[in-house]
Amino acid sequence: MTANTPPLLIAGFFAALCLLCSSLALIDFRRGIIPDALNLAVGGIGLARAIVTGGAVAGVEATAEAIIVGLIFWLFRRLYFAARKIQGLGLGDVKFLAAATLWIGLPGIPVLILIAALSALIAVGGAQLAGQTLTRQTSLPFGPFLALGLLSAVAAQQWFGLS
């Protein structure tokens, strides 16, 4: 972030991201799908933020990183399907991770994944403690946890200086 970027503008970008992530989480939880329009909005606002805070070169770098992350997770998705014959990661999740990279860059992806995985494990543990039967075939929408991971990673980078 450049020194002359108004803090109110940064807060506005984050507020927009919060709204988009909330919508995404709710839709994925209810319908098991992350709409392309929401992924596009997350990515578009993330790209706009990268350009406003770092210039055109930062926008190009963020886009290249997003493409790399998208390809890595798409490949991971394909390999998992080849090994297990079931989809373990939805295509909407892959697109969301690519869009999220425009916000947090490559260094933020491990933080996002860690927070998403831990929060999903906590949710599954809570469901089992509440008496819900879960098997290896139980489907769990991962979008809400990815959204939480993204918001946490952005906040950690922005306000705590973690990269």
Rank of each mutant, 00 (worst) to 15 (best):
P35C: 11
A16T: 07
V52F: 04
I51T: 09
I45T: 14
D36N: 06
T5N: 03
L150A: 07
L97I: 02
R77G: 14
A130I: 09
I33K: 09
L118C: 06
G126V: 15
L151T: 13
L8C: 05
L8A: 15
A120L: 07
G105Y: 04
F14D: 00
C21Y: 08
A155C: 10
I72C: 11
A100C: 10
P110A: 05
P141F: 11
G70Q: 03
G44Y: 15
L17D: 00
A41Y: 08
T101E: 01
A98N: 02
V111A: 02
G43S: 04
L121I: 09
A41P: 06
W74V: 01
G46F: 01
W159C: 04
T135V: 05
R49Q: 13
A82I: 14
A147V: 13
R30F: 14
D28F: 12
L71I: 06
F76S: 06
C21P: 02
C21V: 10
R49T: 10
K95S: 14
L79Y: 01
I51Y: 00
G105M: 05
S152A: 15
G59D: 00
V57K: 09
Q132C: 10
Q137H: 06
R84Y: 03
Q137Y: 13
L97D: 05
I33N: 04
L75H: 00
G46W: 03
C21N: 12
W103S: 04
W103C: 06
R84H: 10
L20Y: 01
I51R: 02
I113P: 01
F14T: 03
D36M: 06
T63Q: 05
L129P: 03
A153I: 09
L97A: 04
Q87T: 10
L102Q: 01
G125P: 07
G149Y: 10
G131A: 03
Q157E: 08
A58E: 14
F73K: 06
L24G: 06
V124R: 05
G70L: 12
